[in-house]
Design a protein around this nucleic acid. Structure first.
Lengths: 148, 148
DNA sequence: CAGATAATTGAGACATCGTATCAATTAGGT
DNA sequence: ACCTAATTGATACGATGTCTCAATTATCTG
């Protein structure tokens, strides 16, 4: 990946336990598969890959584990250029993504270009800000050089 | 709504024609329904409302009209806190949204807090920026005062 | 280690959201 | 009024998740 701050297998398993979730074989398989991805993916894609790795893991379990991982902050949901939404592996801490609108590559951007959270409390009168979501779209280096 | 820059019925119909689309009864009904909304909505919600207004409008036509309106820039797609995505009425020009995570109210934010586009060309080495999507989440004034 | 127990699982039906097909209708230019 | 292509409604379909439920299993307690 682009920077080295992605969570590792033991880290995620630790977070799981710490949050009160059980560490099961199915979850291991799903997490291993997710950690191997370097671009956004759909639930269906993940189901296929997990199924290829372990035929006994159920469809519902994959989606349930995705929910858990979103809850833990290991992955996030993003819009996909094609419409619908996908999932993407997230490094820890506040950050945003640059998404290649051609191949789906996801780059993690360190930091946040927005002003301090304090300044944004007054974004709109009376609105209590809780968070934000920022996604950049464009072409990654590889896709720029491909003709067409 | 919060600011007065939302498109009006004649404006949207004009845009429709100008873009080469025909002005039909079904589209009028869908557009009227959309213009009456002040928060994000799902396709299904809109289908129900349009159907209530005119029982003869088909499901597919509602979604087709939504596509046209996205194309015209009258509405945009946003993430919904509950997951999935929704549609939201948009004023013209580059802007972003503040979305109440409790009631779904959407506030249009004039301008853009990000630095000039020029500066963002170098966001990540080699990445050619095409655009971005920014959404704020929080509680609107009304929802802050509601107990819980 | 064994037993208790609550979380988790797989299977598959179901729900939601949106799209494709297709013959019939209709808007808009002439 | 006529022509023609765009649009329509109905319906089947597809993609993406969610729910139910009985069976299993990870973790805790002793």
């Amino acid at each position: 990946m682009v920077n080295g701050s992605e969570p590792t297998m033991p880290q995620v398993l630790g977070s799981l336990q710490q949050a009160g979730y059980k560490v099961t074989a199915a979850r291991r398989t799903v997490i291993e598969t997710v950690l191997g991805k370097d671009r956004h993916f759909t639930g269906a894609e993940l189901v296929a890959e997990v199924f290829a790795a372990d035929r006994s893991v159920g469809r519902a379990t994959v989606f349930r584990t995705l929910d858990v991982l979103v809850d833990l902050g290991v992955i996030g949901r993003v819009h996909r250029p094609e419409g619908g939404h996908g999932y993407v592996l997230c490094p820890r801490g506040h950050h945003h993504h640059a998404i290649c609108s051609r191949c789906g590559l996801v780059l993690d951007l360190p930091g946040c270009p927005l002003n301090s959270e304090a300044g944004q409390d007054t974004l709109v009168a009376g609105f209590r800000l809780q968070g934000h979501r920022l996604e950049y779209y464009g072409l990654c280096q590889a896709c720029q050089t491909k003709d067409n």
